[in-house]
Write a protein that binds this DNA or RNA. Structure first.
Length: 229
DNA sequence: GCCAACGTTGGC
DNA sequence: GCCAACGTTGGC
């Protein structure tokens, strides 16, 4: 079976037929070796379970991907939620993430956790649907592929720098939740103390893989039932 | 296509 | 270790 690839903004690759591909994604950054510095806090790389001091069971995520064609080193990095649905088993590997903070979030993901599939860098950015983690972090093979747009010559096979997870389509949102709508709530919540007051989409602008609190996740799901504001 | 935000690189 | 230059992300 082919492996799907996707790209996300910062992350994944293209959706190719199968493998081959180059994936494209944008976030590539090269980094120093140990740089895990920017991570959120201090967790440099804890690979395993993460800090669970208790609340790690309910983690939710938001993952960005570009639904419109864009070439990166000659490779189309487009990967929309429709592209994910078209993959075998509606499953794809989220390759191409080249940012330490985003990578560390990938490594913290656990089986069956849910993530919003966010469409970025497009006409109408927003949340298109829900996916779930069906394979926990493992080495991103595209870092070793010379003609992949996210090739990282500094990464060694015996100590891979970048990771990816597999995600499976769960469902489309009942209606598309636009960035503009989310922003309206975010701004209101900053003053009222509402659930989106610290949403990473606005406070960590360029992060392609980001965590959501249960409150953020549930509030966004509740928007599906309402009229777009 | 522009450009603000912000992460990375590399000189010193 | 500081910080200016540079590159990327991604909204608009």
């Amino acid at each position: 079976m082919p492996k799907p690839r996707k790209r996300l903004a910062g992350a994944a690759g293209p959706a190719g037929p199968d493998n081959k591909g180059p994936a494209g994604k944008r976030t590539k950054t090269k980094n120093p070796a140990g740089a895990s510095a920017t991570m959120g806090n201090s967790s440099p790389e804890k690979t395993s379970a993460s800090k669970d001091s208790g609340k790690n069971l309910s983690n939710y995520w938001l993952m960005k991907s570009e639904p419109e064609s864009r070439l990166e080193k000659g490779v189309d990095v487009k990967f929309s939620i429709e592209d994910l649905k078209a993959q075998p088993k509606q499953t794809a590997c989220w390759d191409g993430v080249r940012n330490y903070q985003a990578r560390n979030f990938l490594r913290a993901m656990k089986l069956e956790q849910e993530a919003f599939f966010y469409h970025s860098n497009c006409k109408e950015p927003g949340i298109a649907g829900l996916v779930k983690i069906v394979k926990e972090a493992y080495p991103d093979h595209t870092q070793f592929e010379k003609n992949n747009p996210h090739y990282d010559p500094s990464s060694k096979e015996d100590n891979p720098k970048w990771s990816m997870v597999d995600v499976q389509f769960v469902r489309m949102m009942k209606r598309y939740i636009t960035l503009a709508e989310l922003k309206t709530h975010y701004q209101a919540h900053k003053t009222t103390g509402g659930p989106l007051k610290n949403m990473a989409l606005f406070t960590r602008q360029r992060l392609s893989v980001q965590p959501l609190t249960p409150e953020e996740f549930n509030f966004i799901l509740s928007l599906e039932e309402k009229e777009p504001s």
